[in-house]
Computed example of a mutant assay.
Amino acid sequence: MPAFNAGLTIKESIDSVLRQSYSNWELIIINDASTDNTASVIDEYLNNENRIVLINLKKNGGLPNARNEGIKNAKGKYITFLDSDDLWFPDKLATQIEFHEKHPDINISHSKYELFDKSGIVKRPLKNIVEFNYKRQGDLRPTIYSVNTVGVLTVMVNRELLNKSGYFDTNLWTMEDQDLWIRIAELGENFGYINKSLAKYRLNVNGITHNLNKYKKAYKVLIKKYENEISRLNATNMAWAYYYRYFGIAHFKKGNYKISVLYLKKSIKLDRYFLNKLLTTVSFFKALFKHYF
């Protein structure tokens, strides 16, 4: 559990681990040089819970680096990830341990998860329809190059596979999890998928619109990094179609209407799936309707 200035949320995240029905776990919290009360909140647990380990970093190194520090210090066969503002359902670990025991040939699994904010669970039915053809189990190529269908807060991965594939790329400030899944997929590993919500992802009030240009740059860096593999799998158009759709909607939410229309037109032109073209158009007009009415 990486934590940077997470004083307002980390208690709830830790408690969701303590409530696990599966008890043989170790929670490694990496305090990434927080300047708020994160450390004092964690200290409240250390005297009463010997399954919690605290690592204090003197210098803030970012999310990928913090996760890597946790992996290096972990003792378990399986590694899981939980950010300090997200939550697990009580049966999260038990469900995945049972899954891996039944499928010993699968070294990485993930599941559905819920979105939530201060008002509660956020439902996005249109998003689920748009993503109808995205692969979540088995060989995730070529989808995983352009769309991250694996929620890091739901992942359970064999430590040996992490050692083989490498850890999170510390040169990436975002999309570092998708980058890792790509490398795992490139090894020929099949992803296991549990069609049940095992975690809750907290939505950021600012979202992607707050750092739009940085996210766009990060996405392009990822496509560039794997452009040969994407080309080999004839997935270049799919990668750019998702880019234009995703950031077209983001630009619209930010009020950049002209560029959003341009991006959405490009997305529709590049996507080879007719239903995706239709739903991209529906997504845009739904956002338009919500904005003006």
Results as ranks from 00 to 15, higher is better:
83 D>T: 07
83 D>S: 08
87 L>G: 01
89 F>G: 00
89 F>N: 02
89 F>D: 03
90 P>S: 08
90 P>R: 10
94 A>S: 10
94 A>P: 05
94 A>V: 07
98 E>C: 07
100 H>P: 06
100 H>C: 08
101 E>K: 12
101 E>R: 13
102 K>N: 13
102 K>M: 12
103 H>C: 12
104 P>D: 11
107 N>E: 14
107 N>W: 05
108 I>H: 02
109 S>L: 09
109 S>P: 03
110 H>C: 13
111 S>R: 00
112 K>S: 06
113 Y>L: 01
114 E>Y: 06
115 L>S: 08
117 D>S: 02
117 D>E: 05
119 S>D: 15
121 I>N: 11
123 K>H: 13
123 K>G: 11
124 R>N: 15
125 P>C: 08
125 P>M: 09
125 P>I: 02
126 L>A: 12
126 L>N: 13
127 K>Y: 10
128 N>C: 13
129 I>L: 14
129 I>H: 12
129 I>R: 11
130 V>K: 09
131 E>G: 07
131 E>R: 09
131 E>A: 14
133 N>I: 15
133 N>G: 04
135 K>S: 10
136 R>S: 07
137 Q>K: 12
137 Q>V: 09
137 Q>W: 12
139 D>T: 08
139 D>E: 15
141 R>M: 06
142 P>N: 09
143 T>W: 06
143 T>S: 14
147 V>A: 08
147 V>H: 03
148 N>S: 14
149 T>H: 10
149 T>Q: 14
152 V>E: 01
153 L>I: 15
154 T>W: 02
155 V>I: 15
155 V>S: 07
156 M>T: 13
157 V>C: 11
159 R>F: 12
160 E>A: 10
162 L>C: 03
162 L>D: 01
164 K>S: 15
165 S>Q: 06
165 S>L: 09
167 Y>M: 14
167 Y>P: 06
168 F>R: 00
169 D>G: 04
169 D>E: 09
169 D>M: 08
170 T>M: 13
171 N>G: 07
171 N>S: 06
171 N>V: 03
172 L>V: 04
173 W>F: 10
173 W>T: 05
174 T>F: 13
174 T>Y: 12
175 M>L: 12
175 M>P: 01
176 E>C: 09
181 W>P: 02
181 W>H: 11
183 R>S: 12
183 R>D: 14
184 I>C: 04
184 I>F: 05
185 A>M: 08
186 E>A: 02
187 L>F: 06
187 L>K: 04
188 G>S: 06
189 E>Q: 10
189 E>G: 10
191 F>I: 11
191 F>T: 11
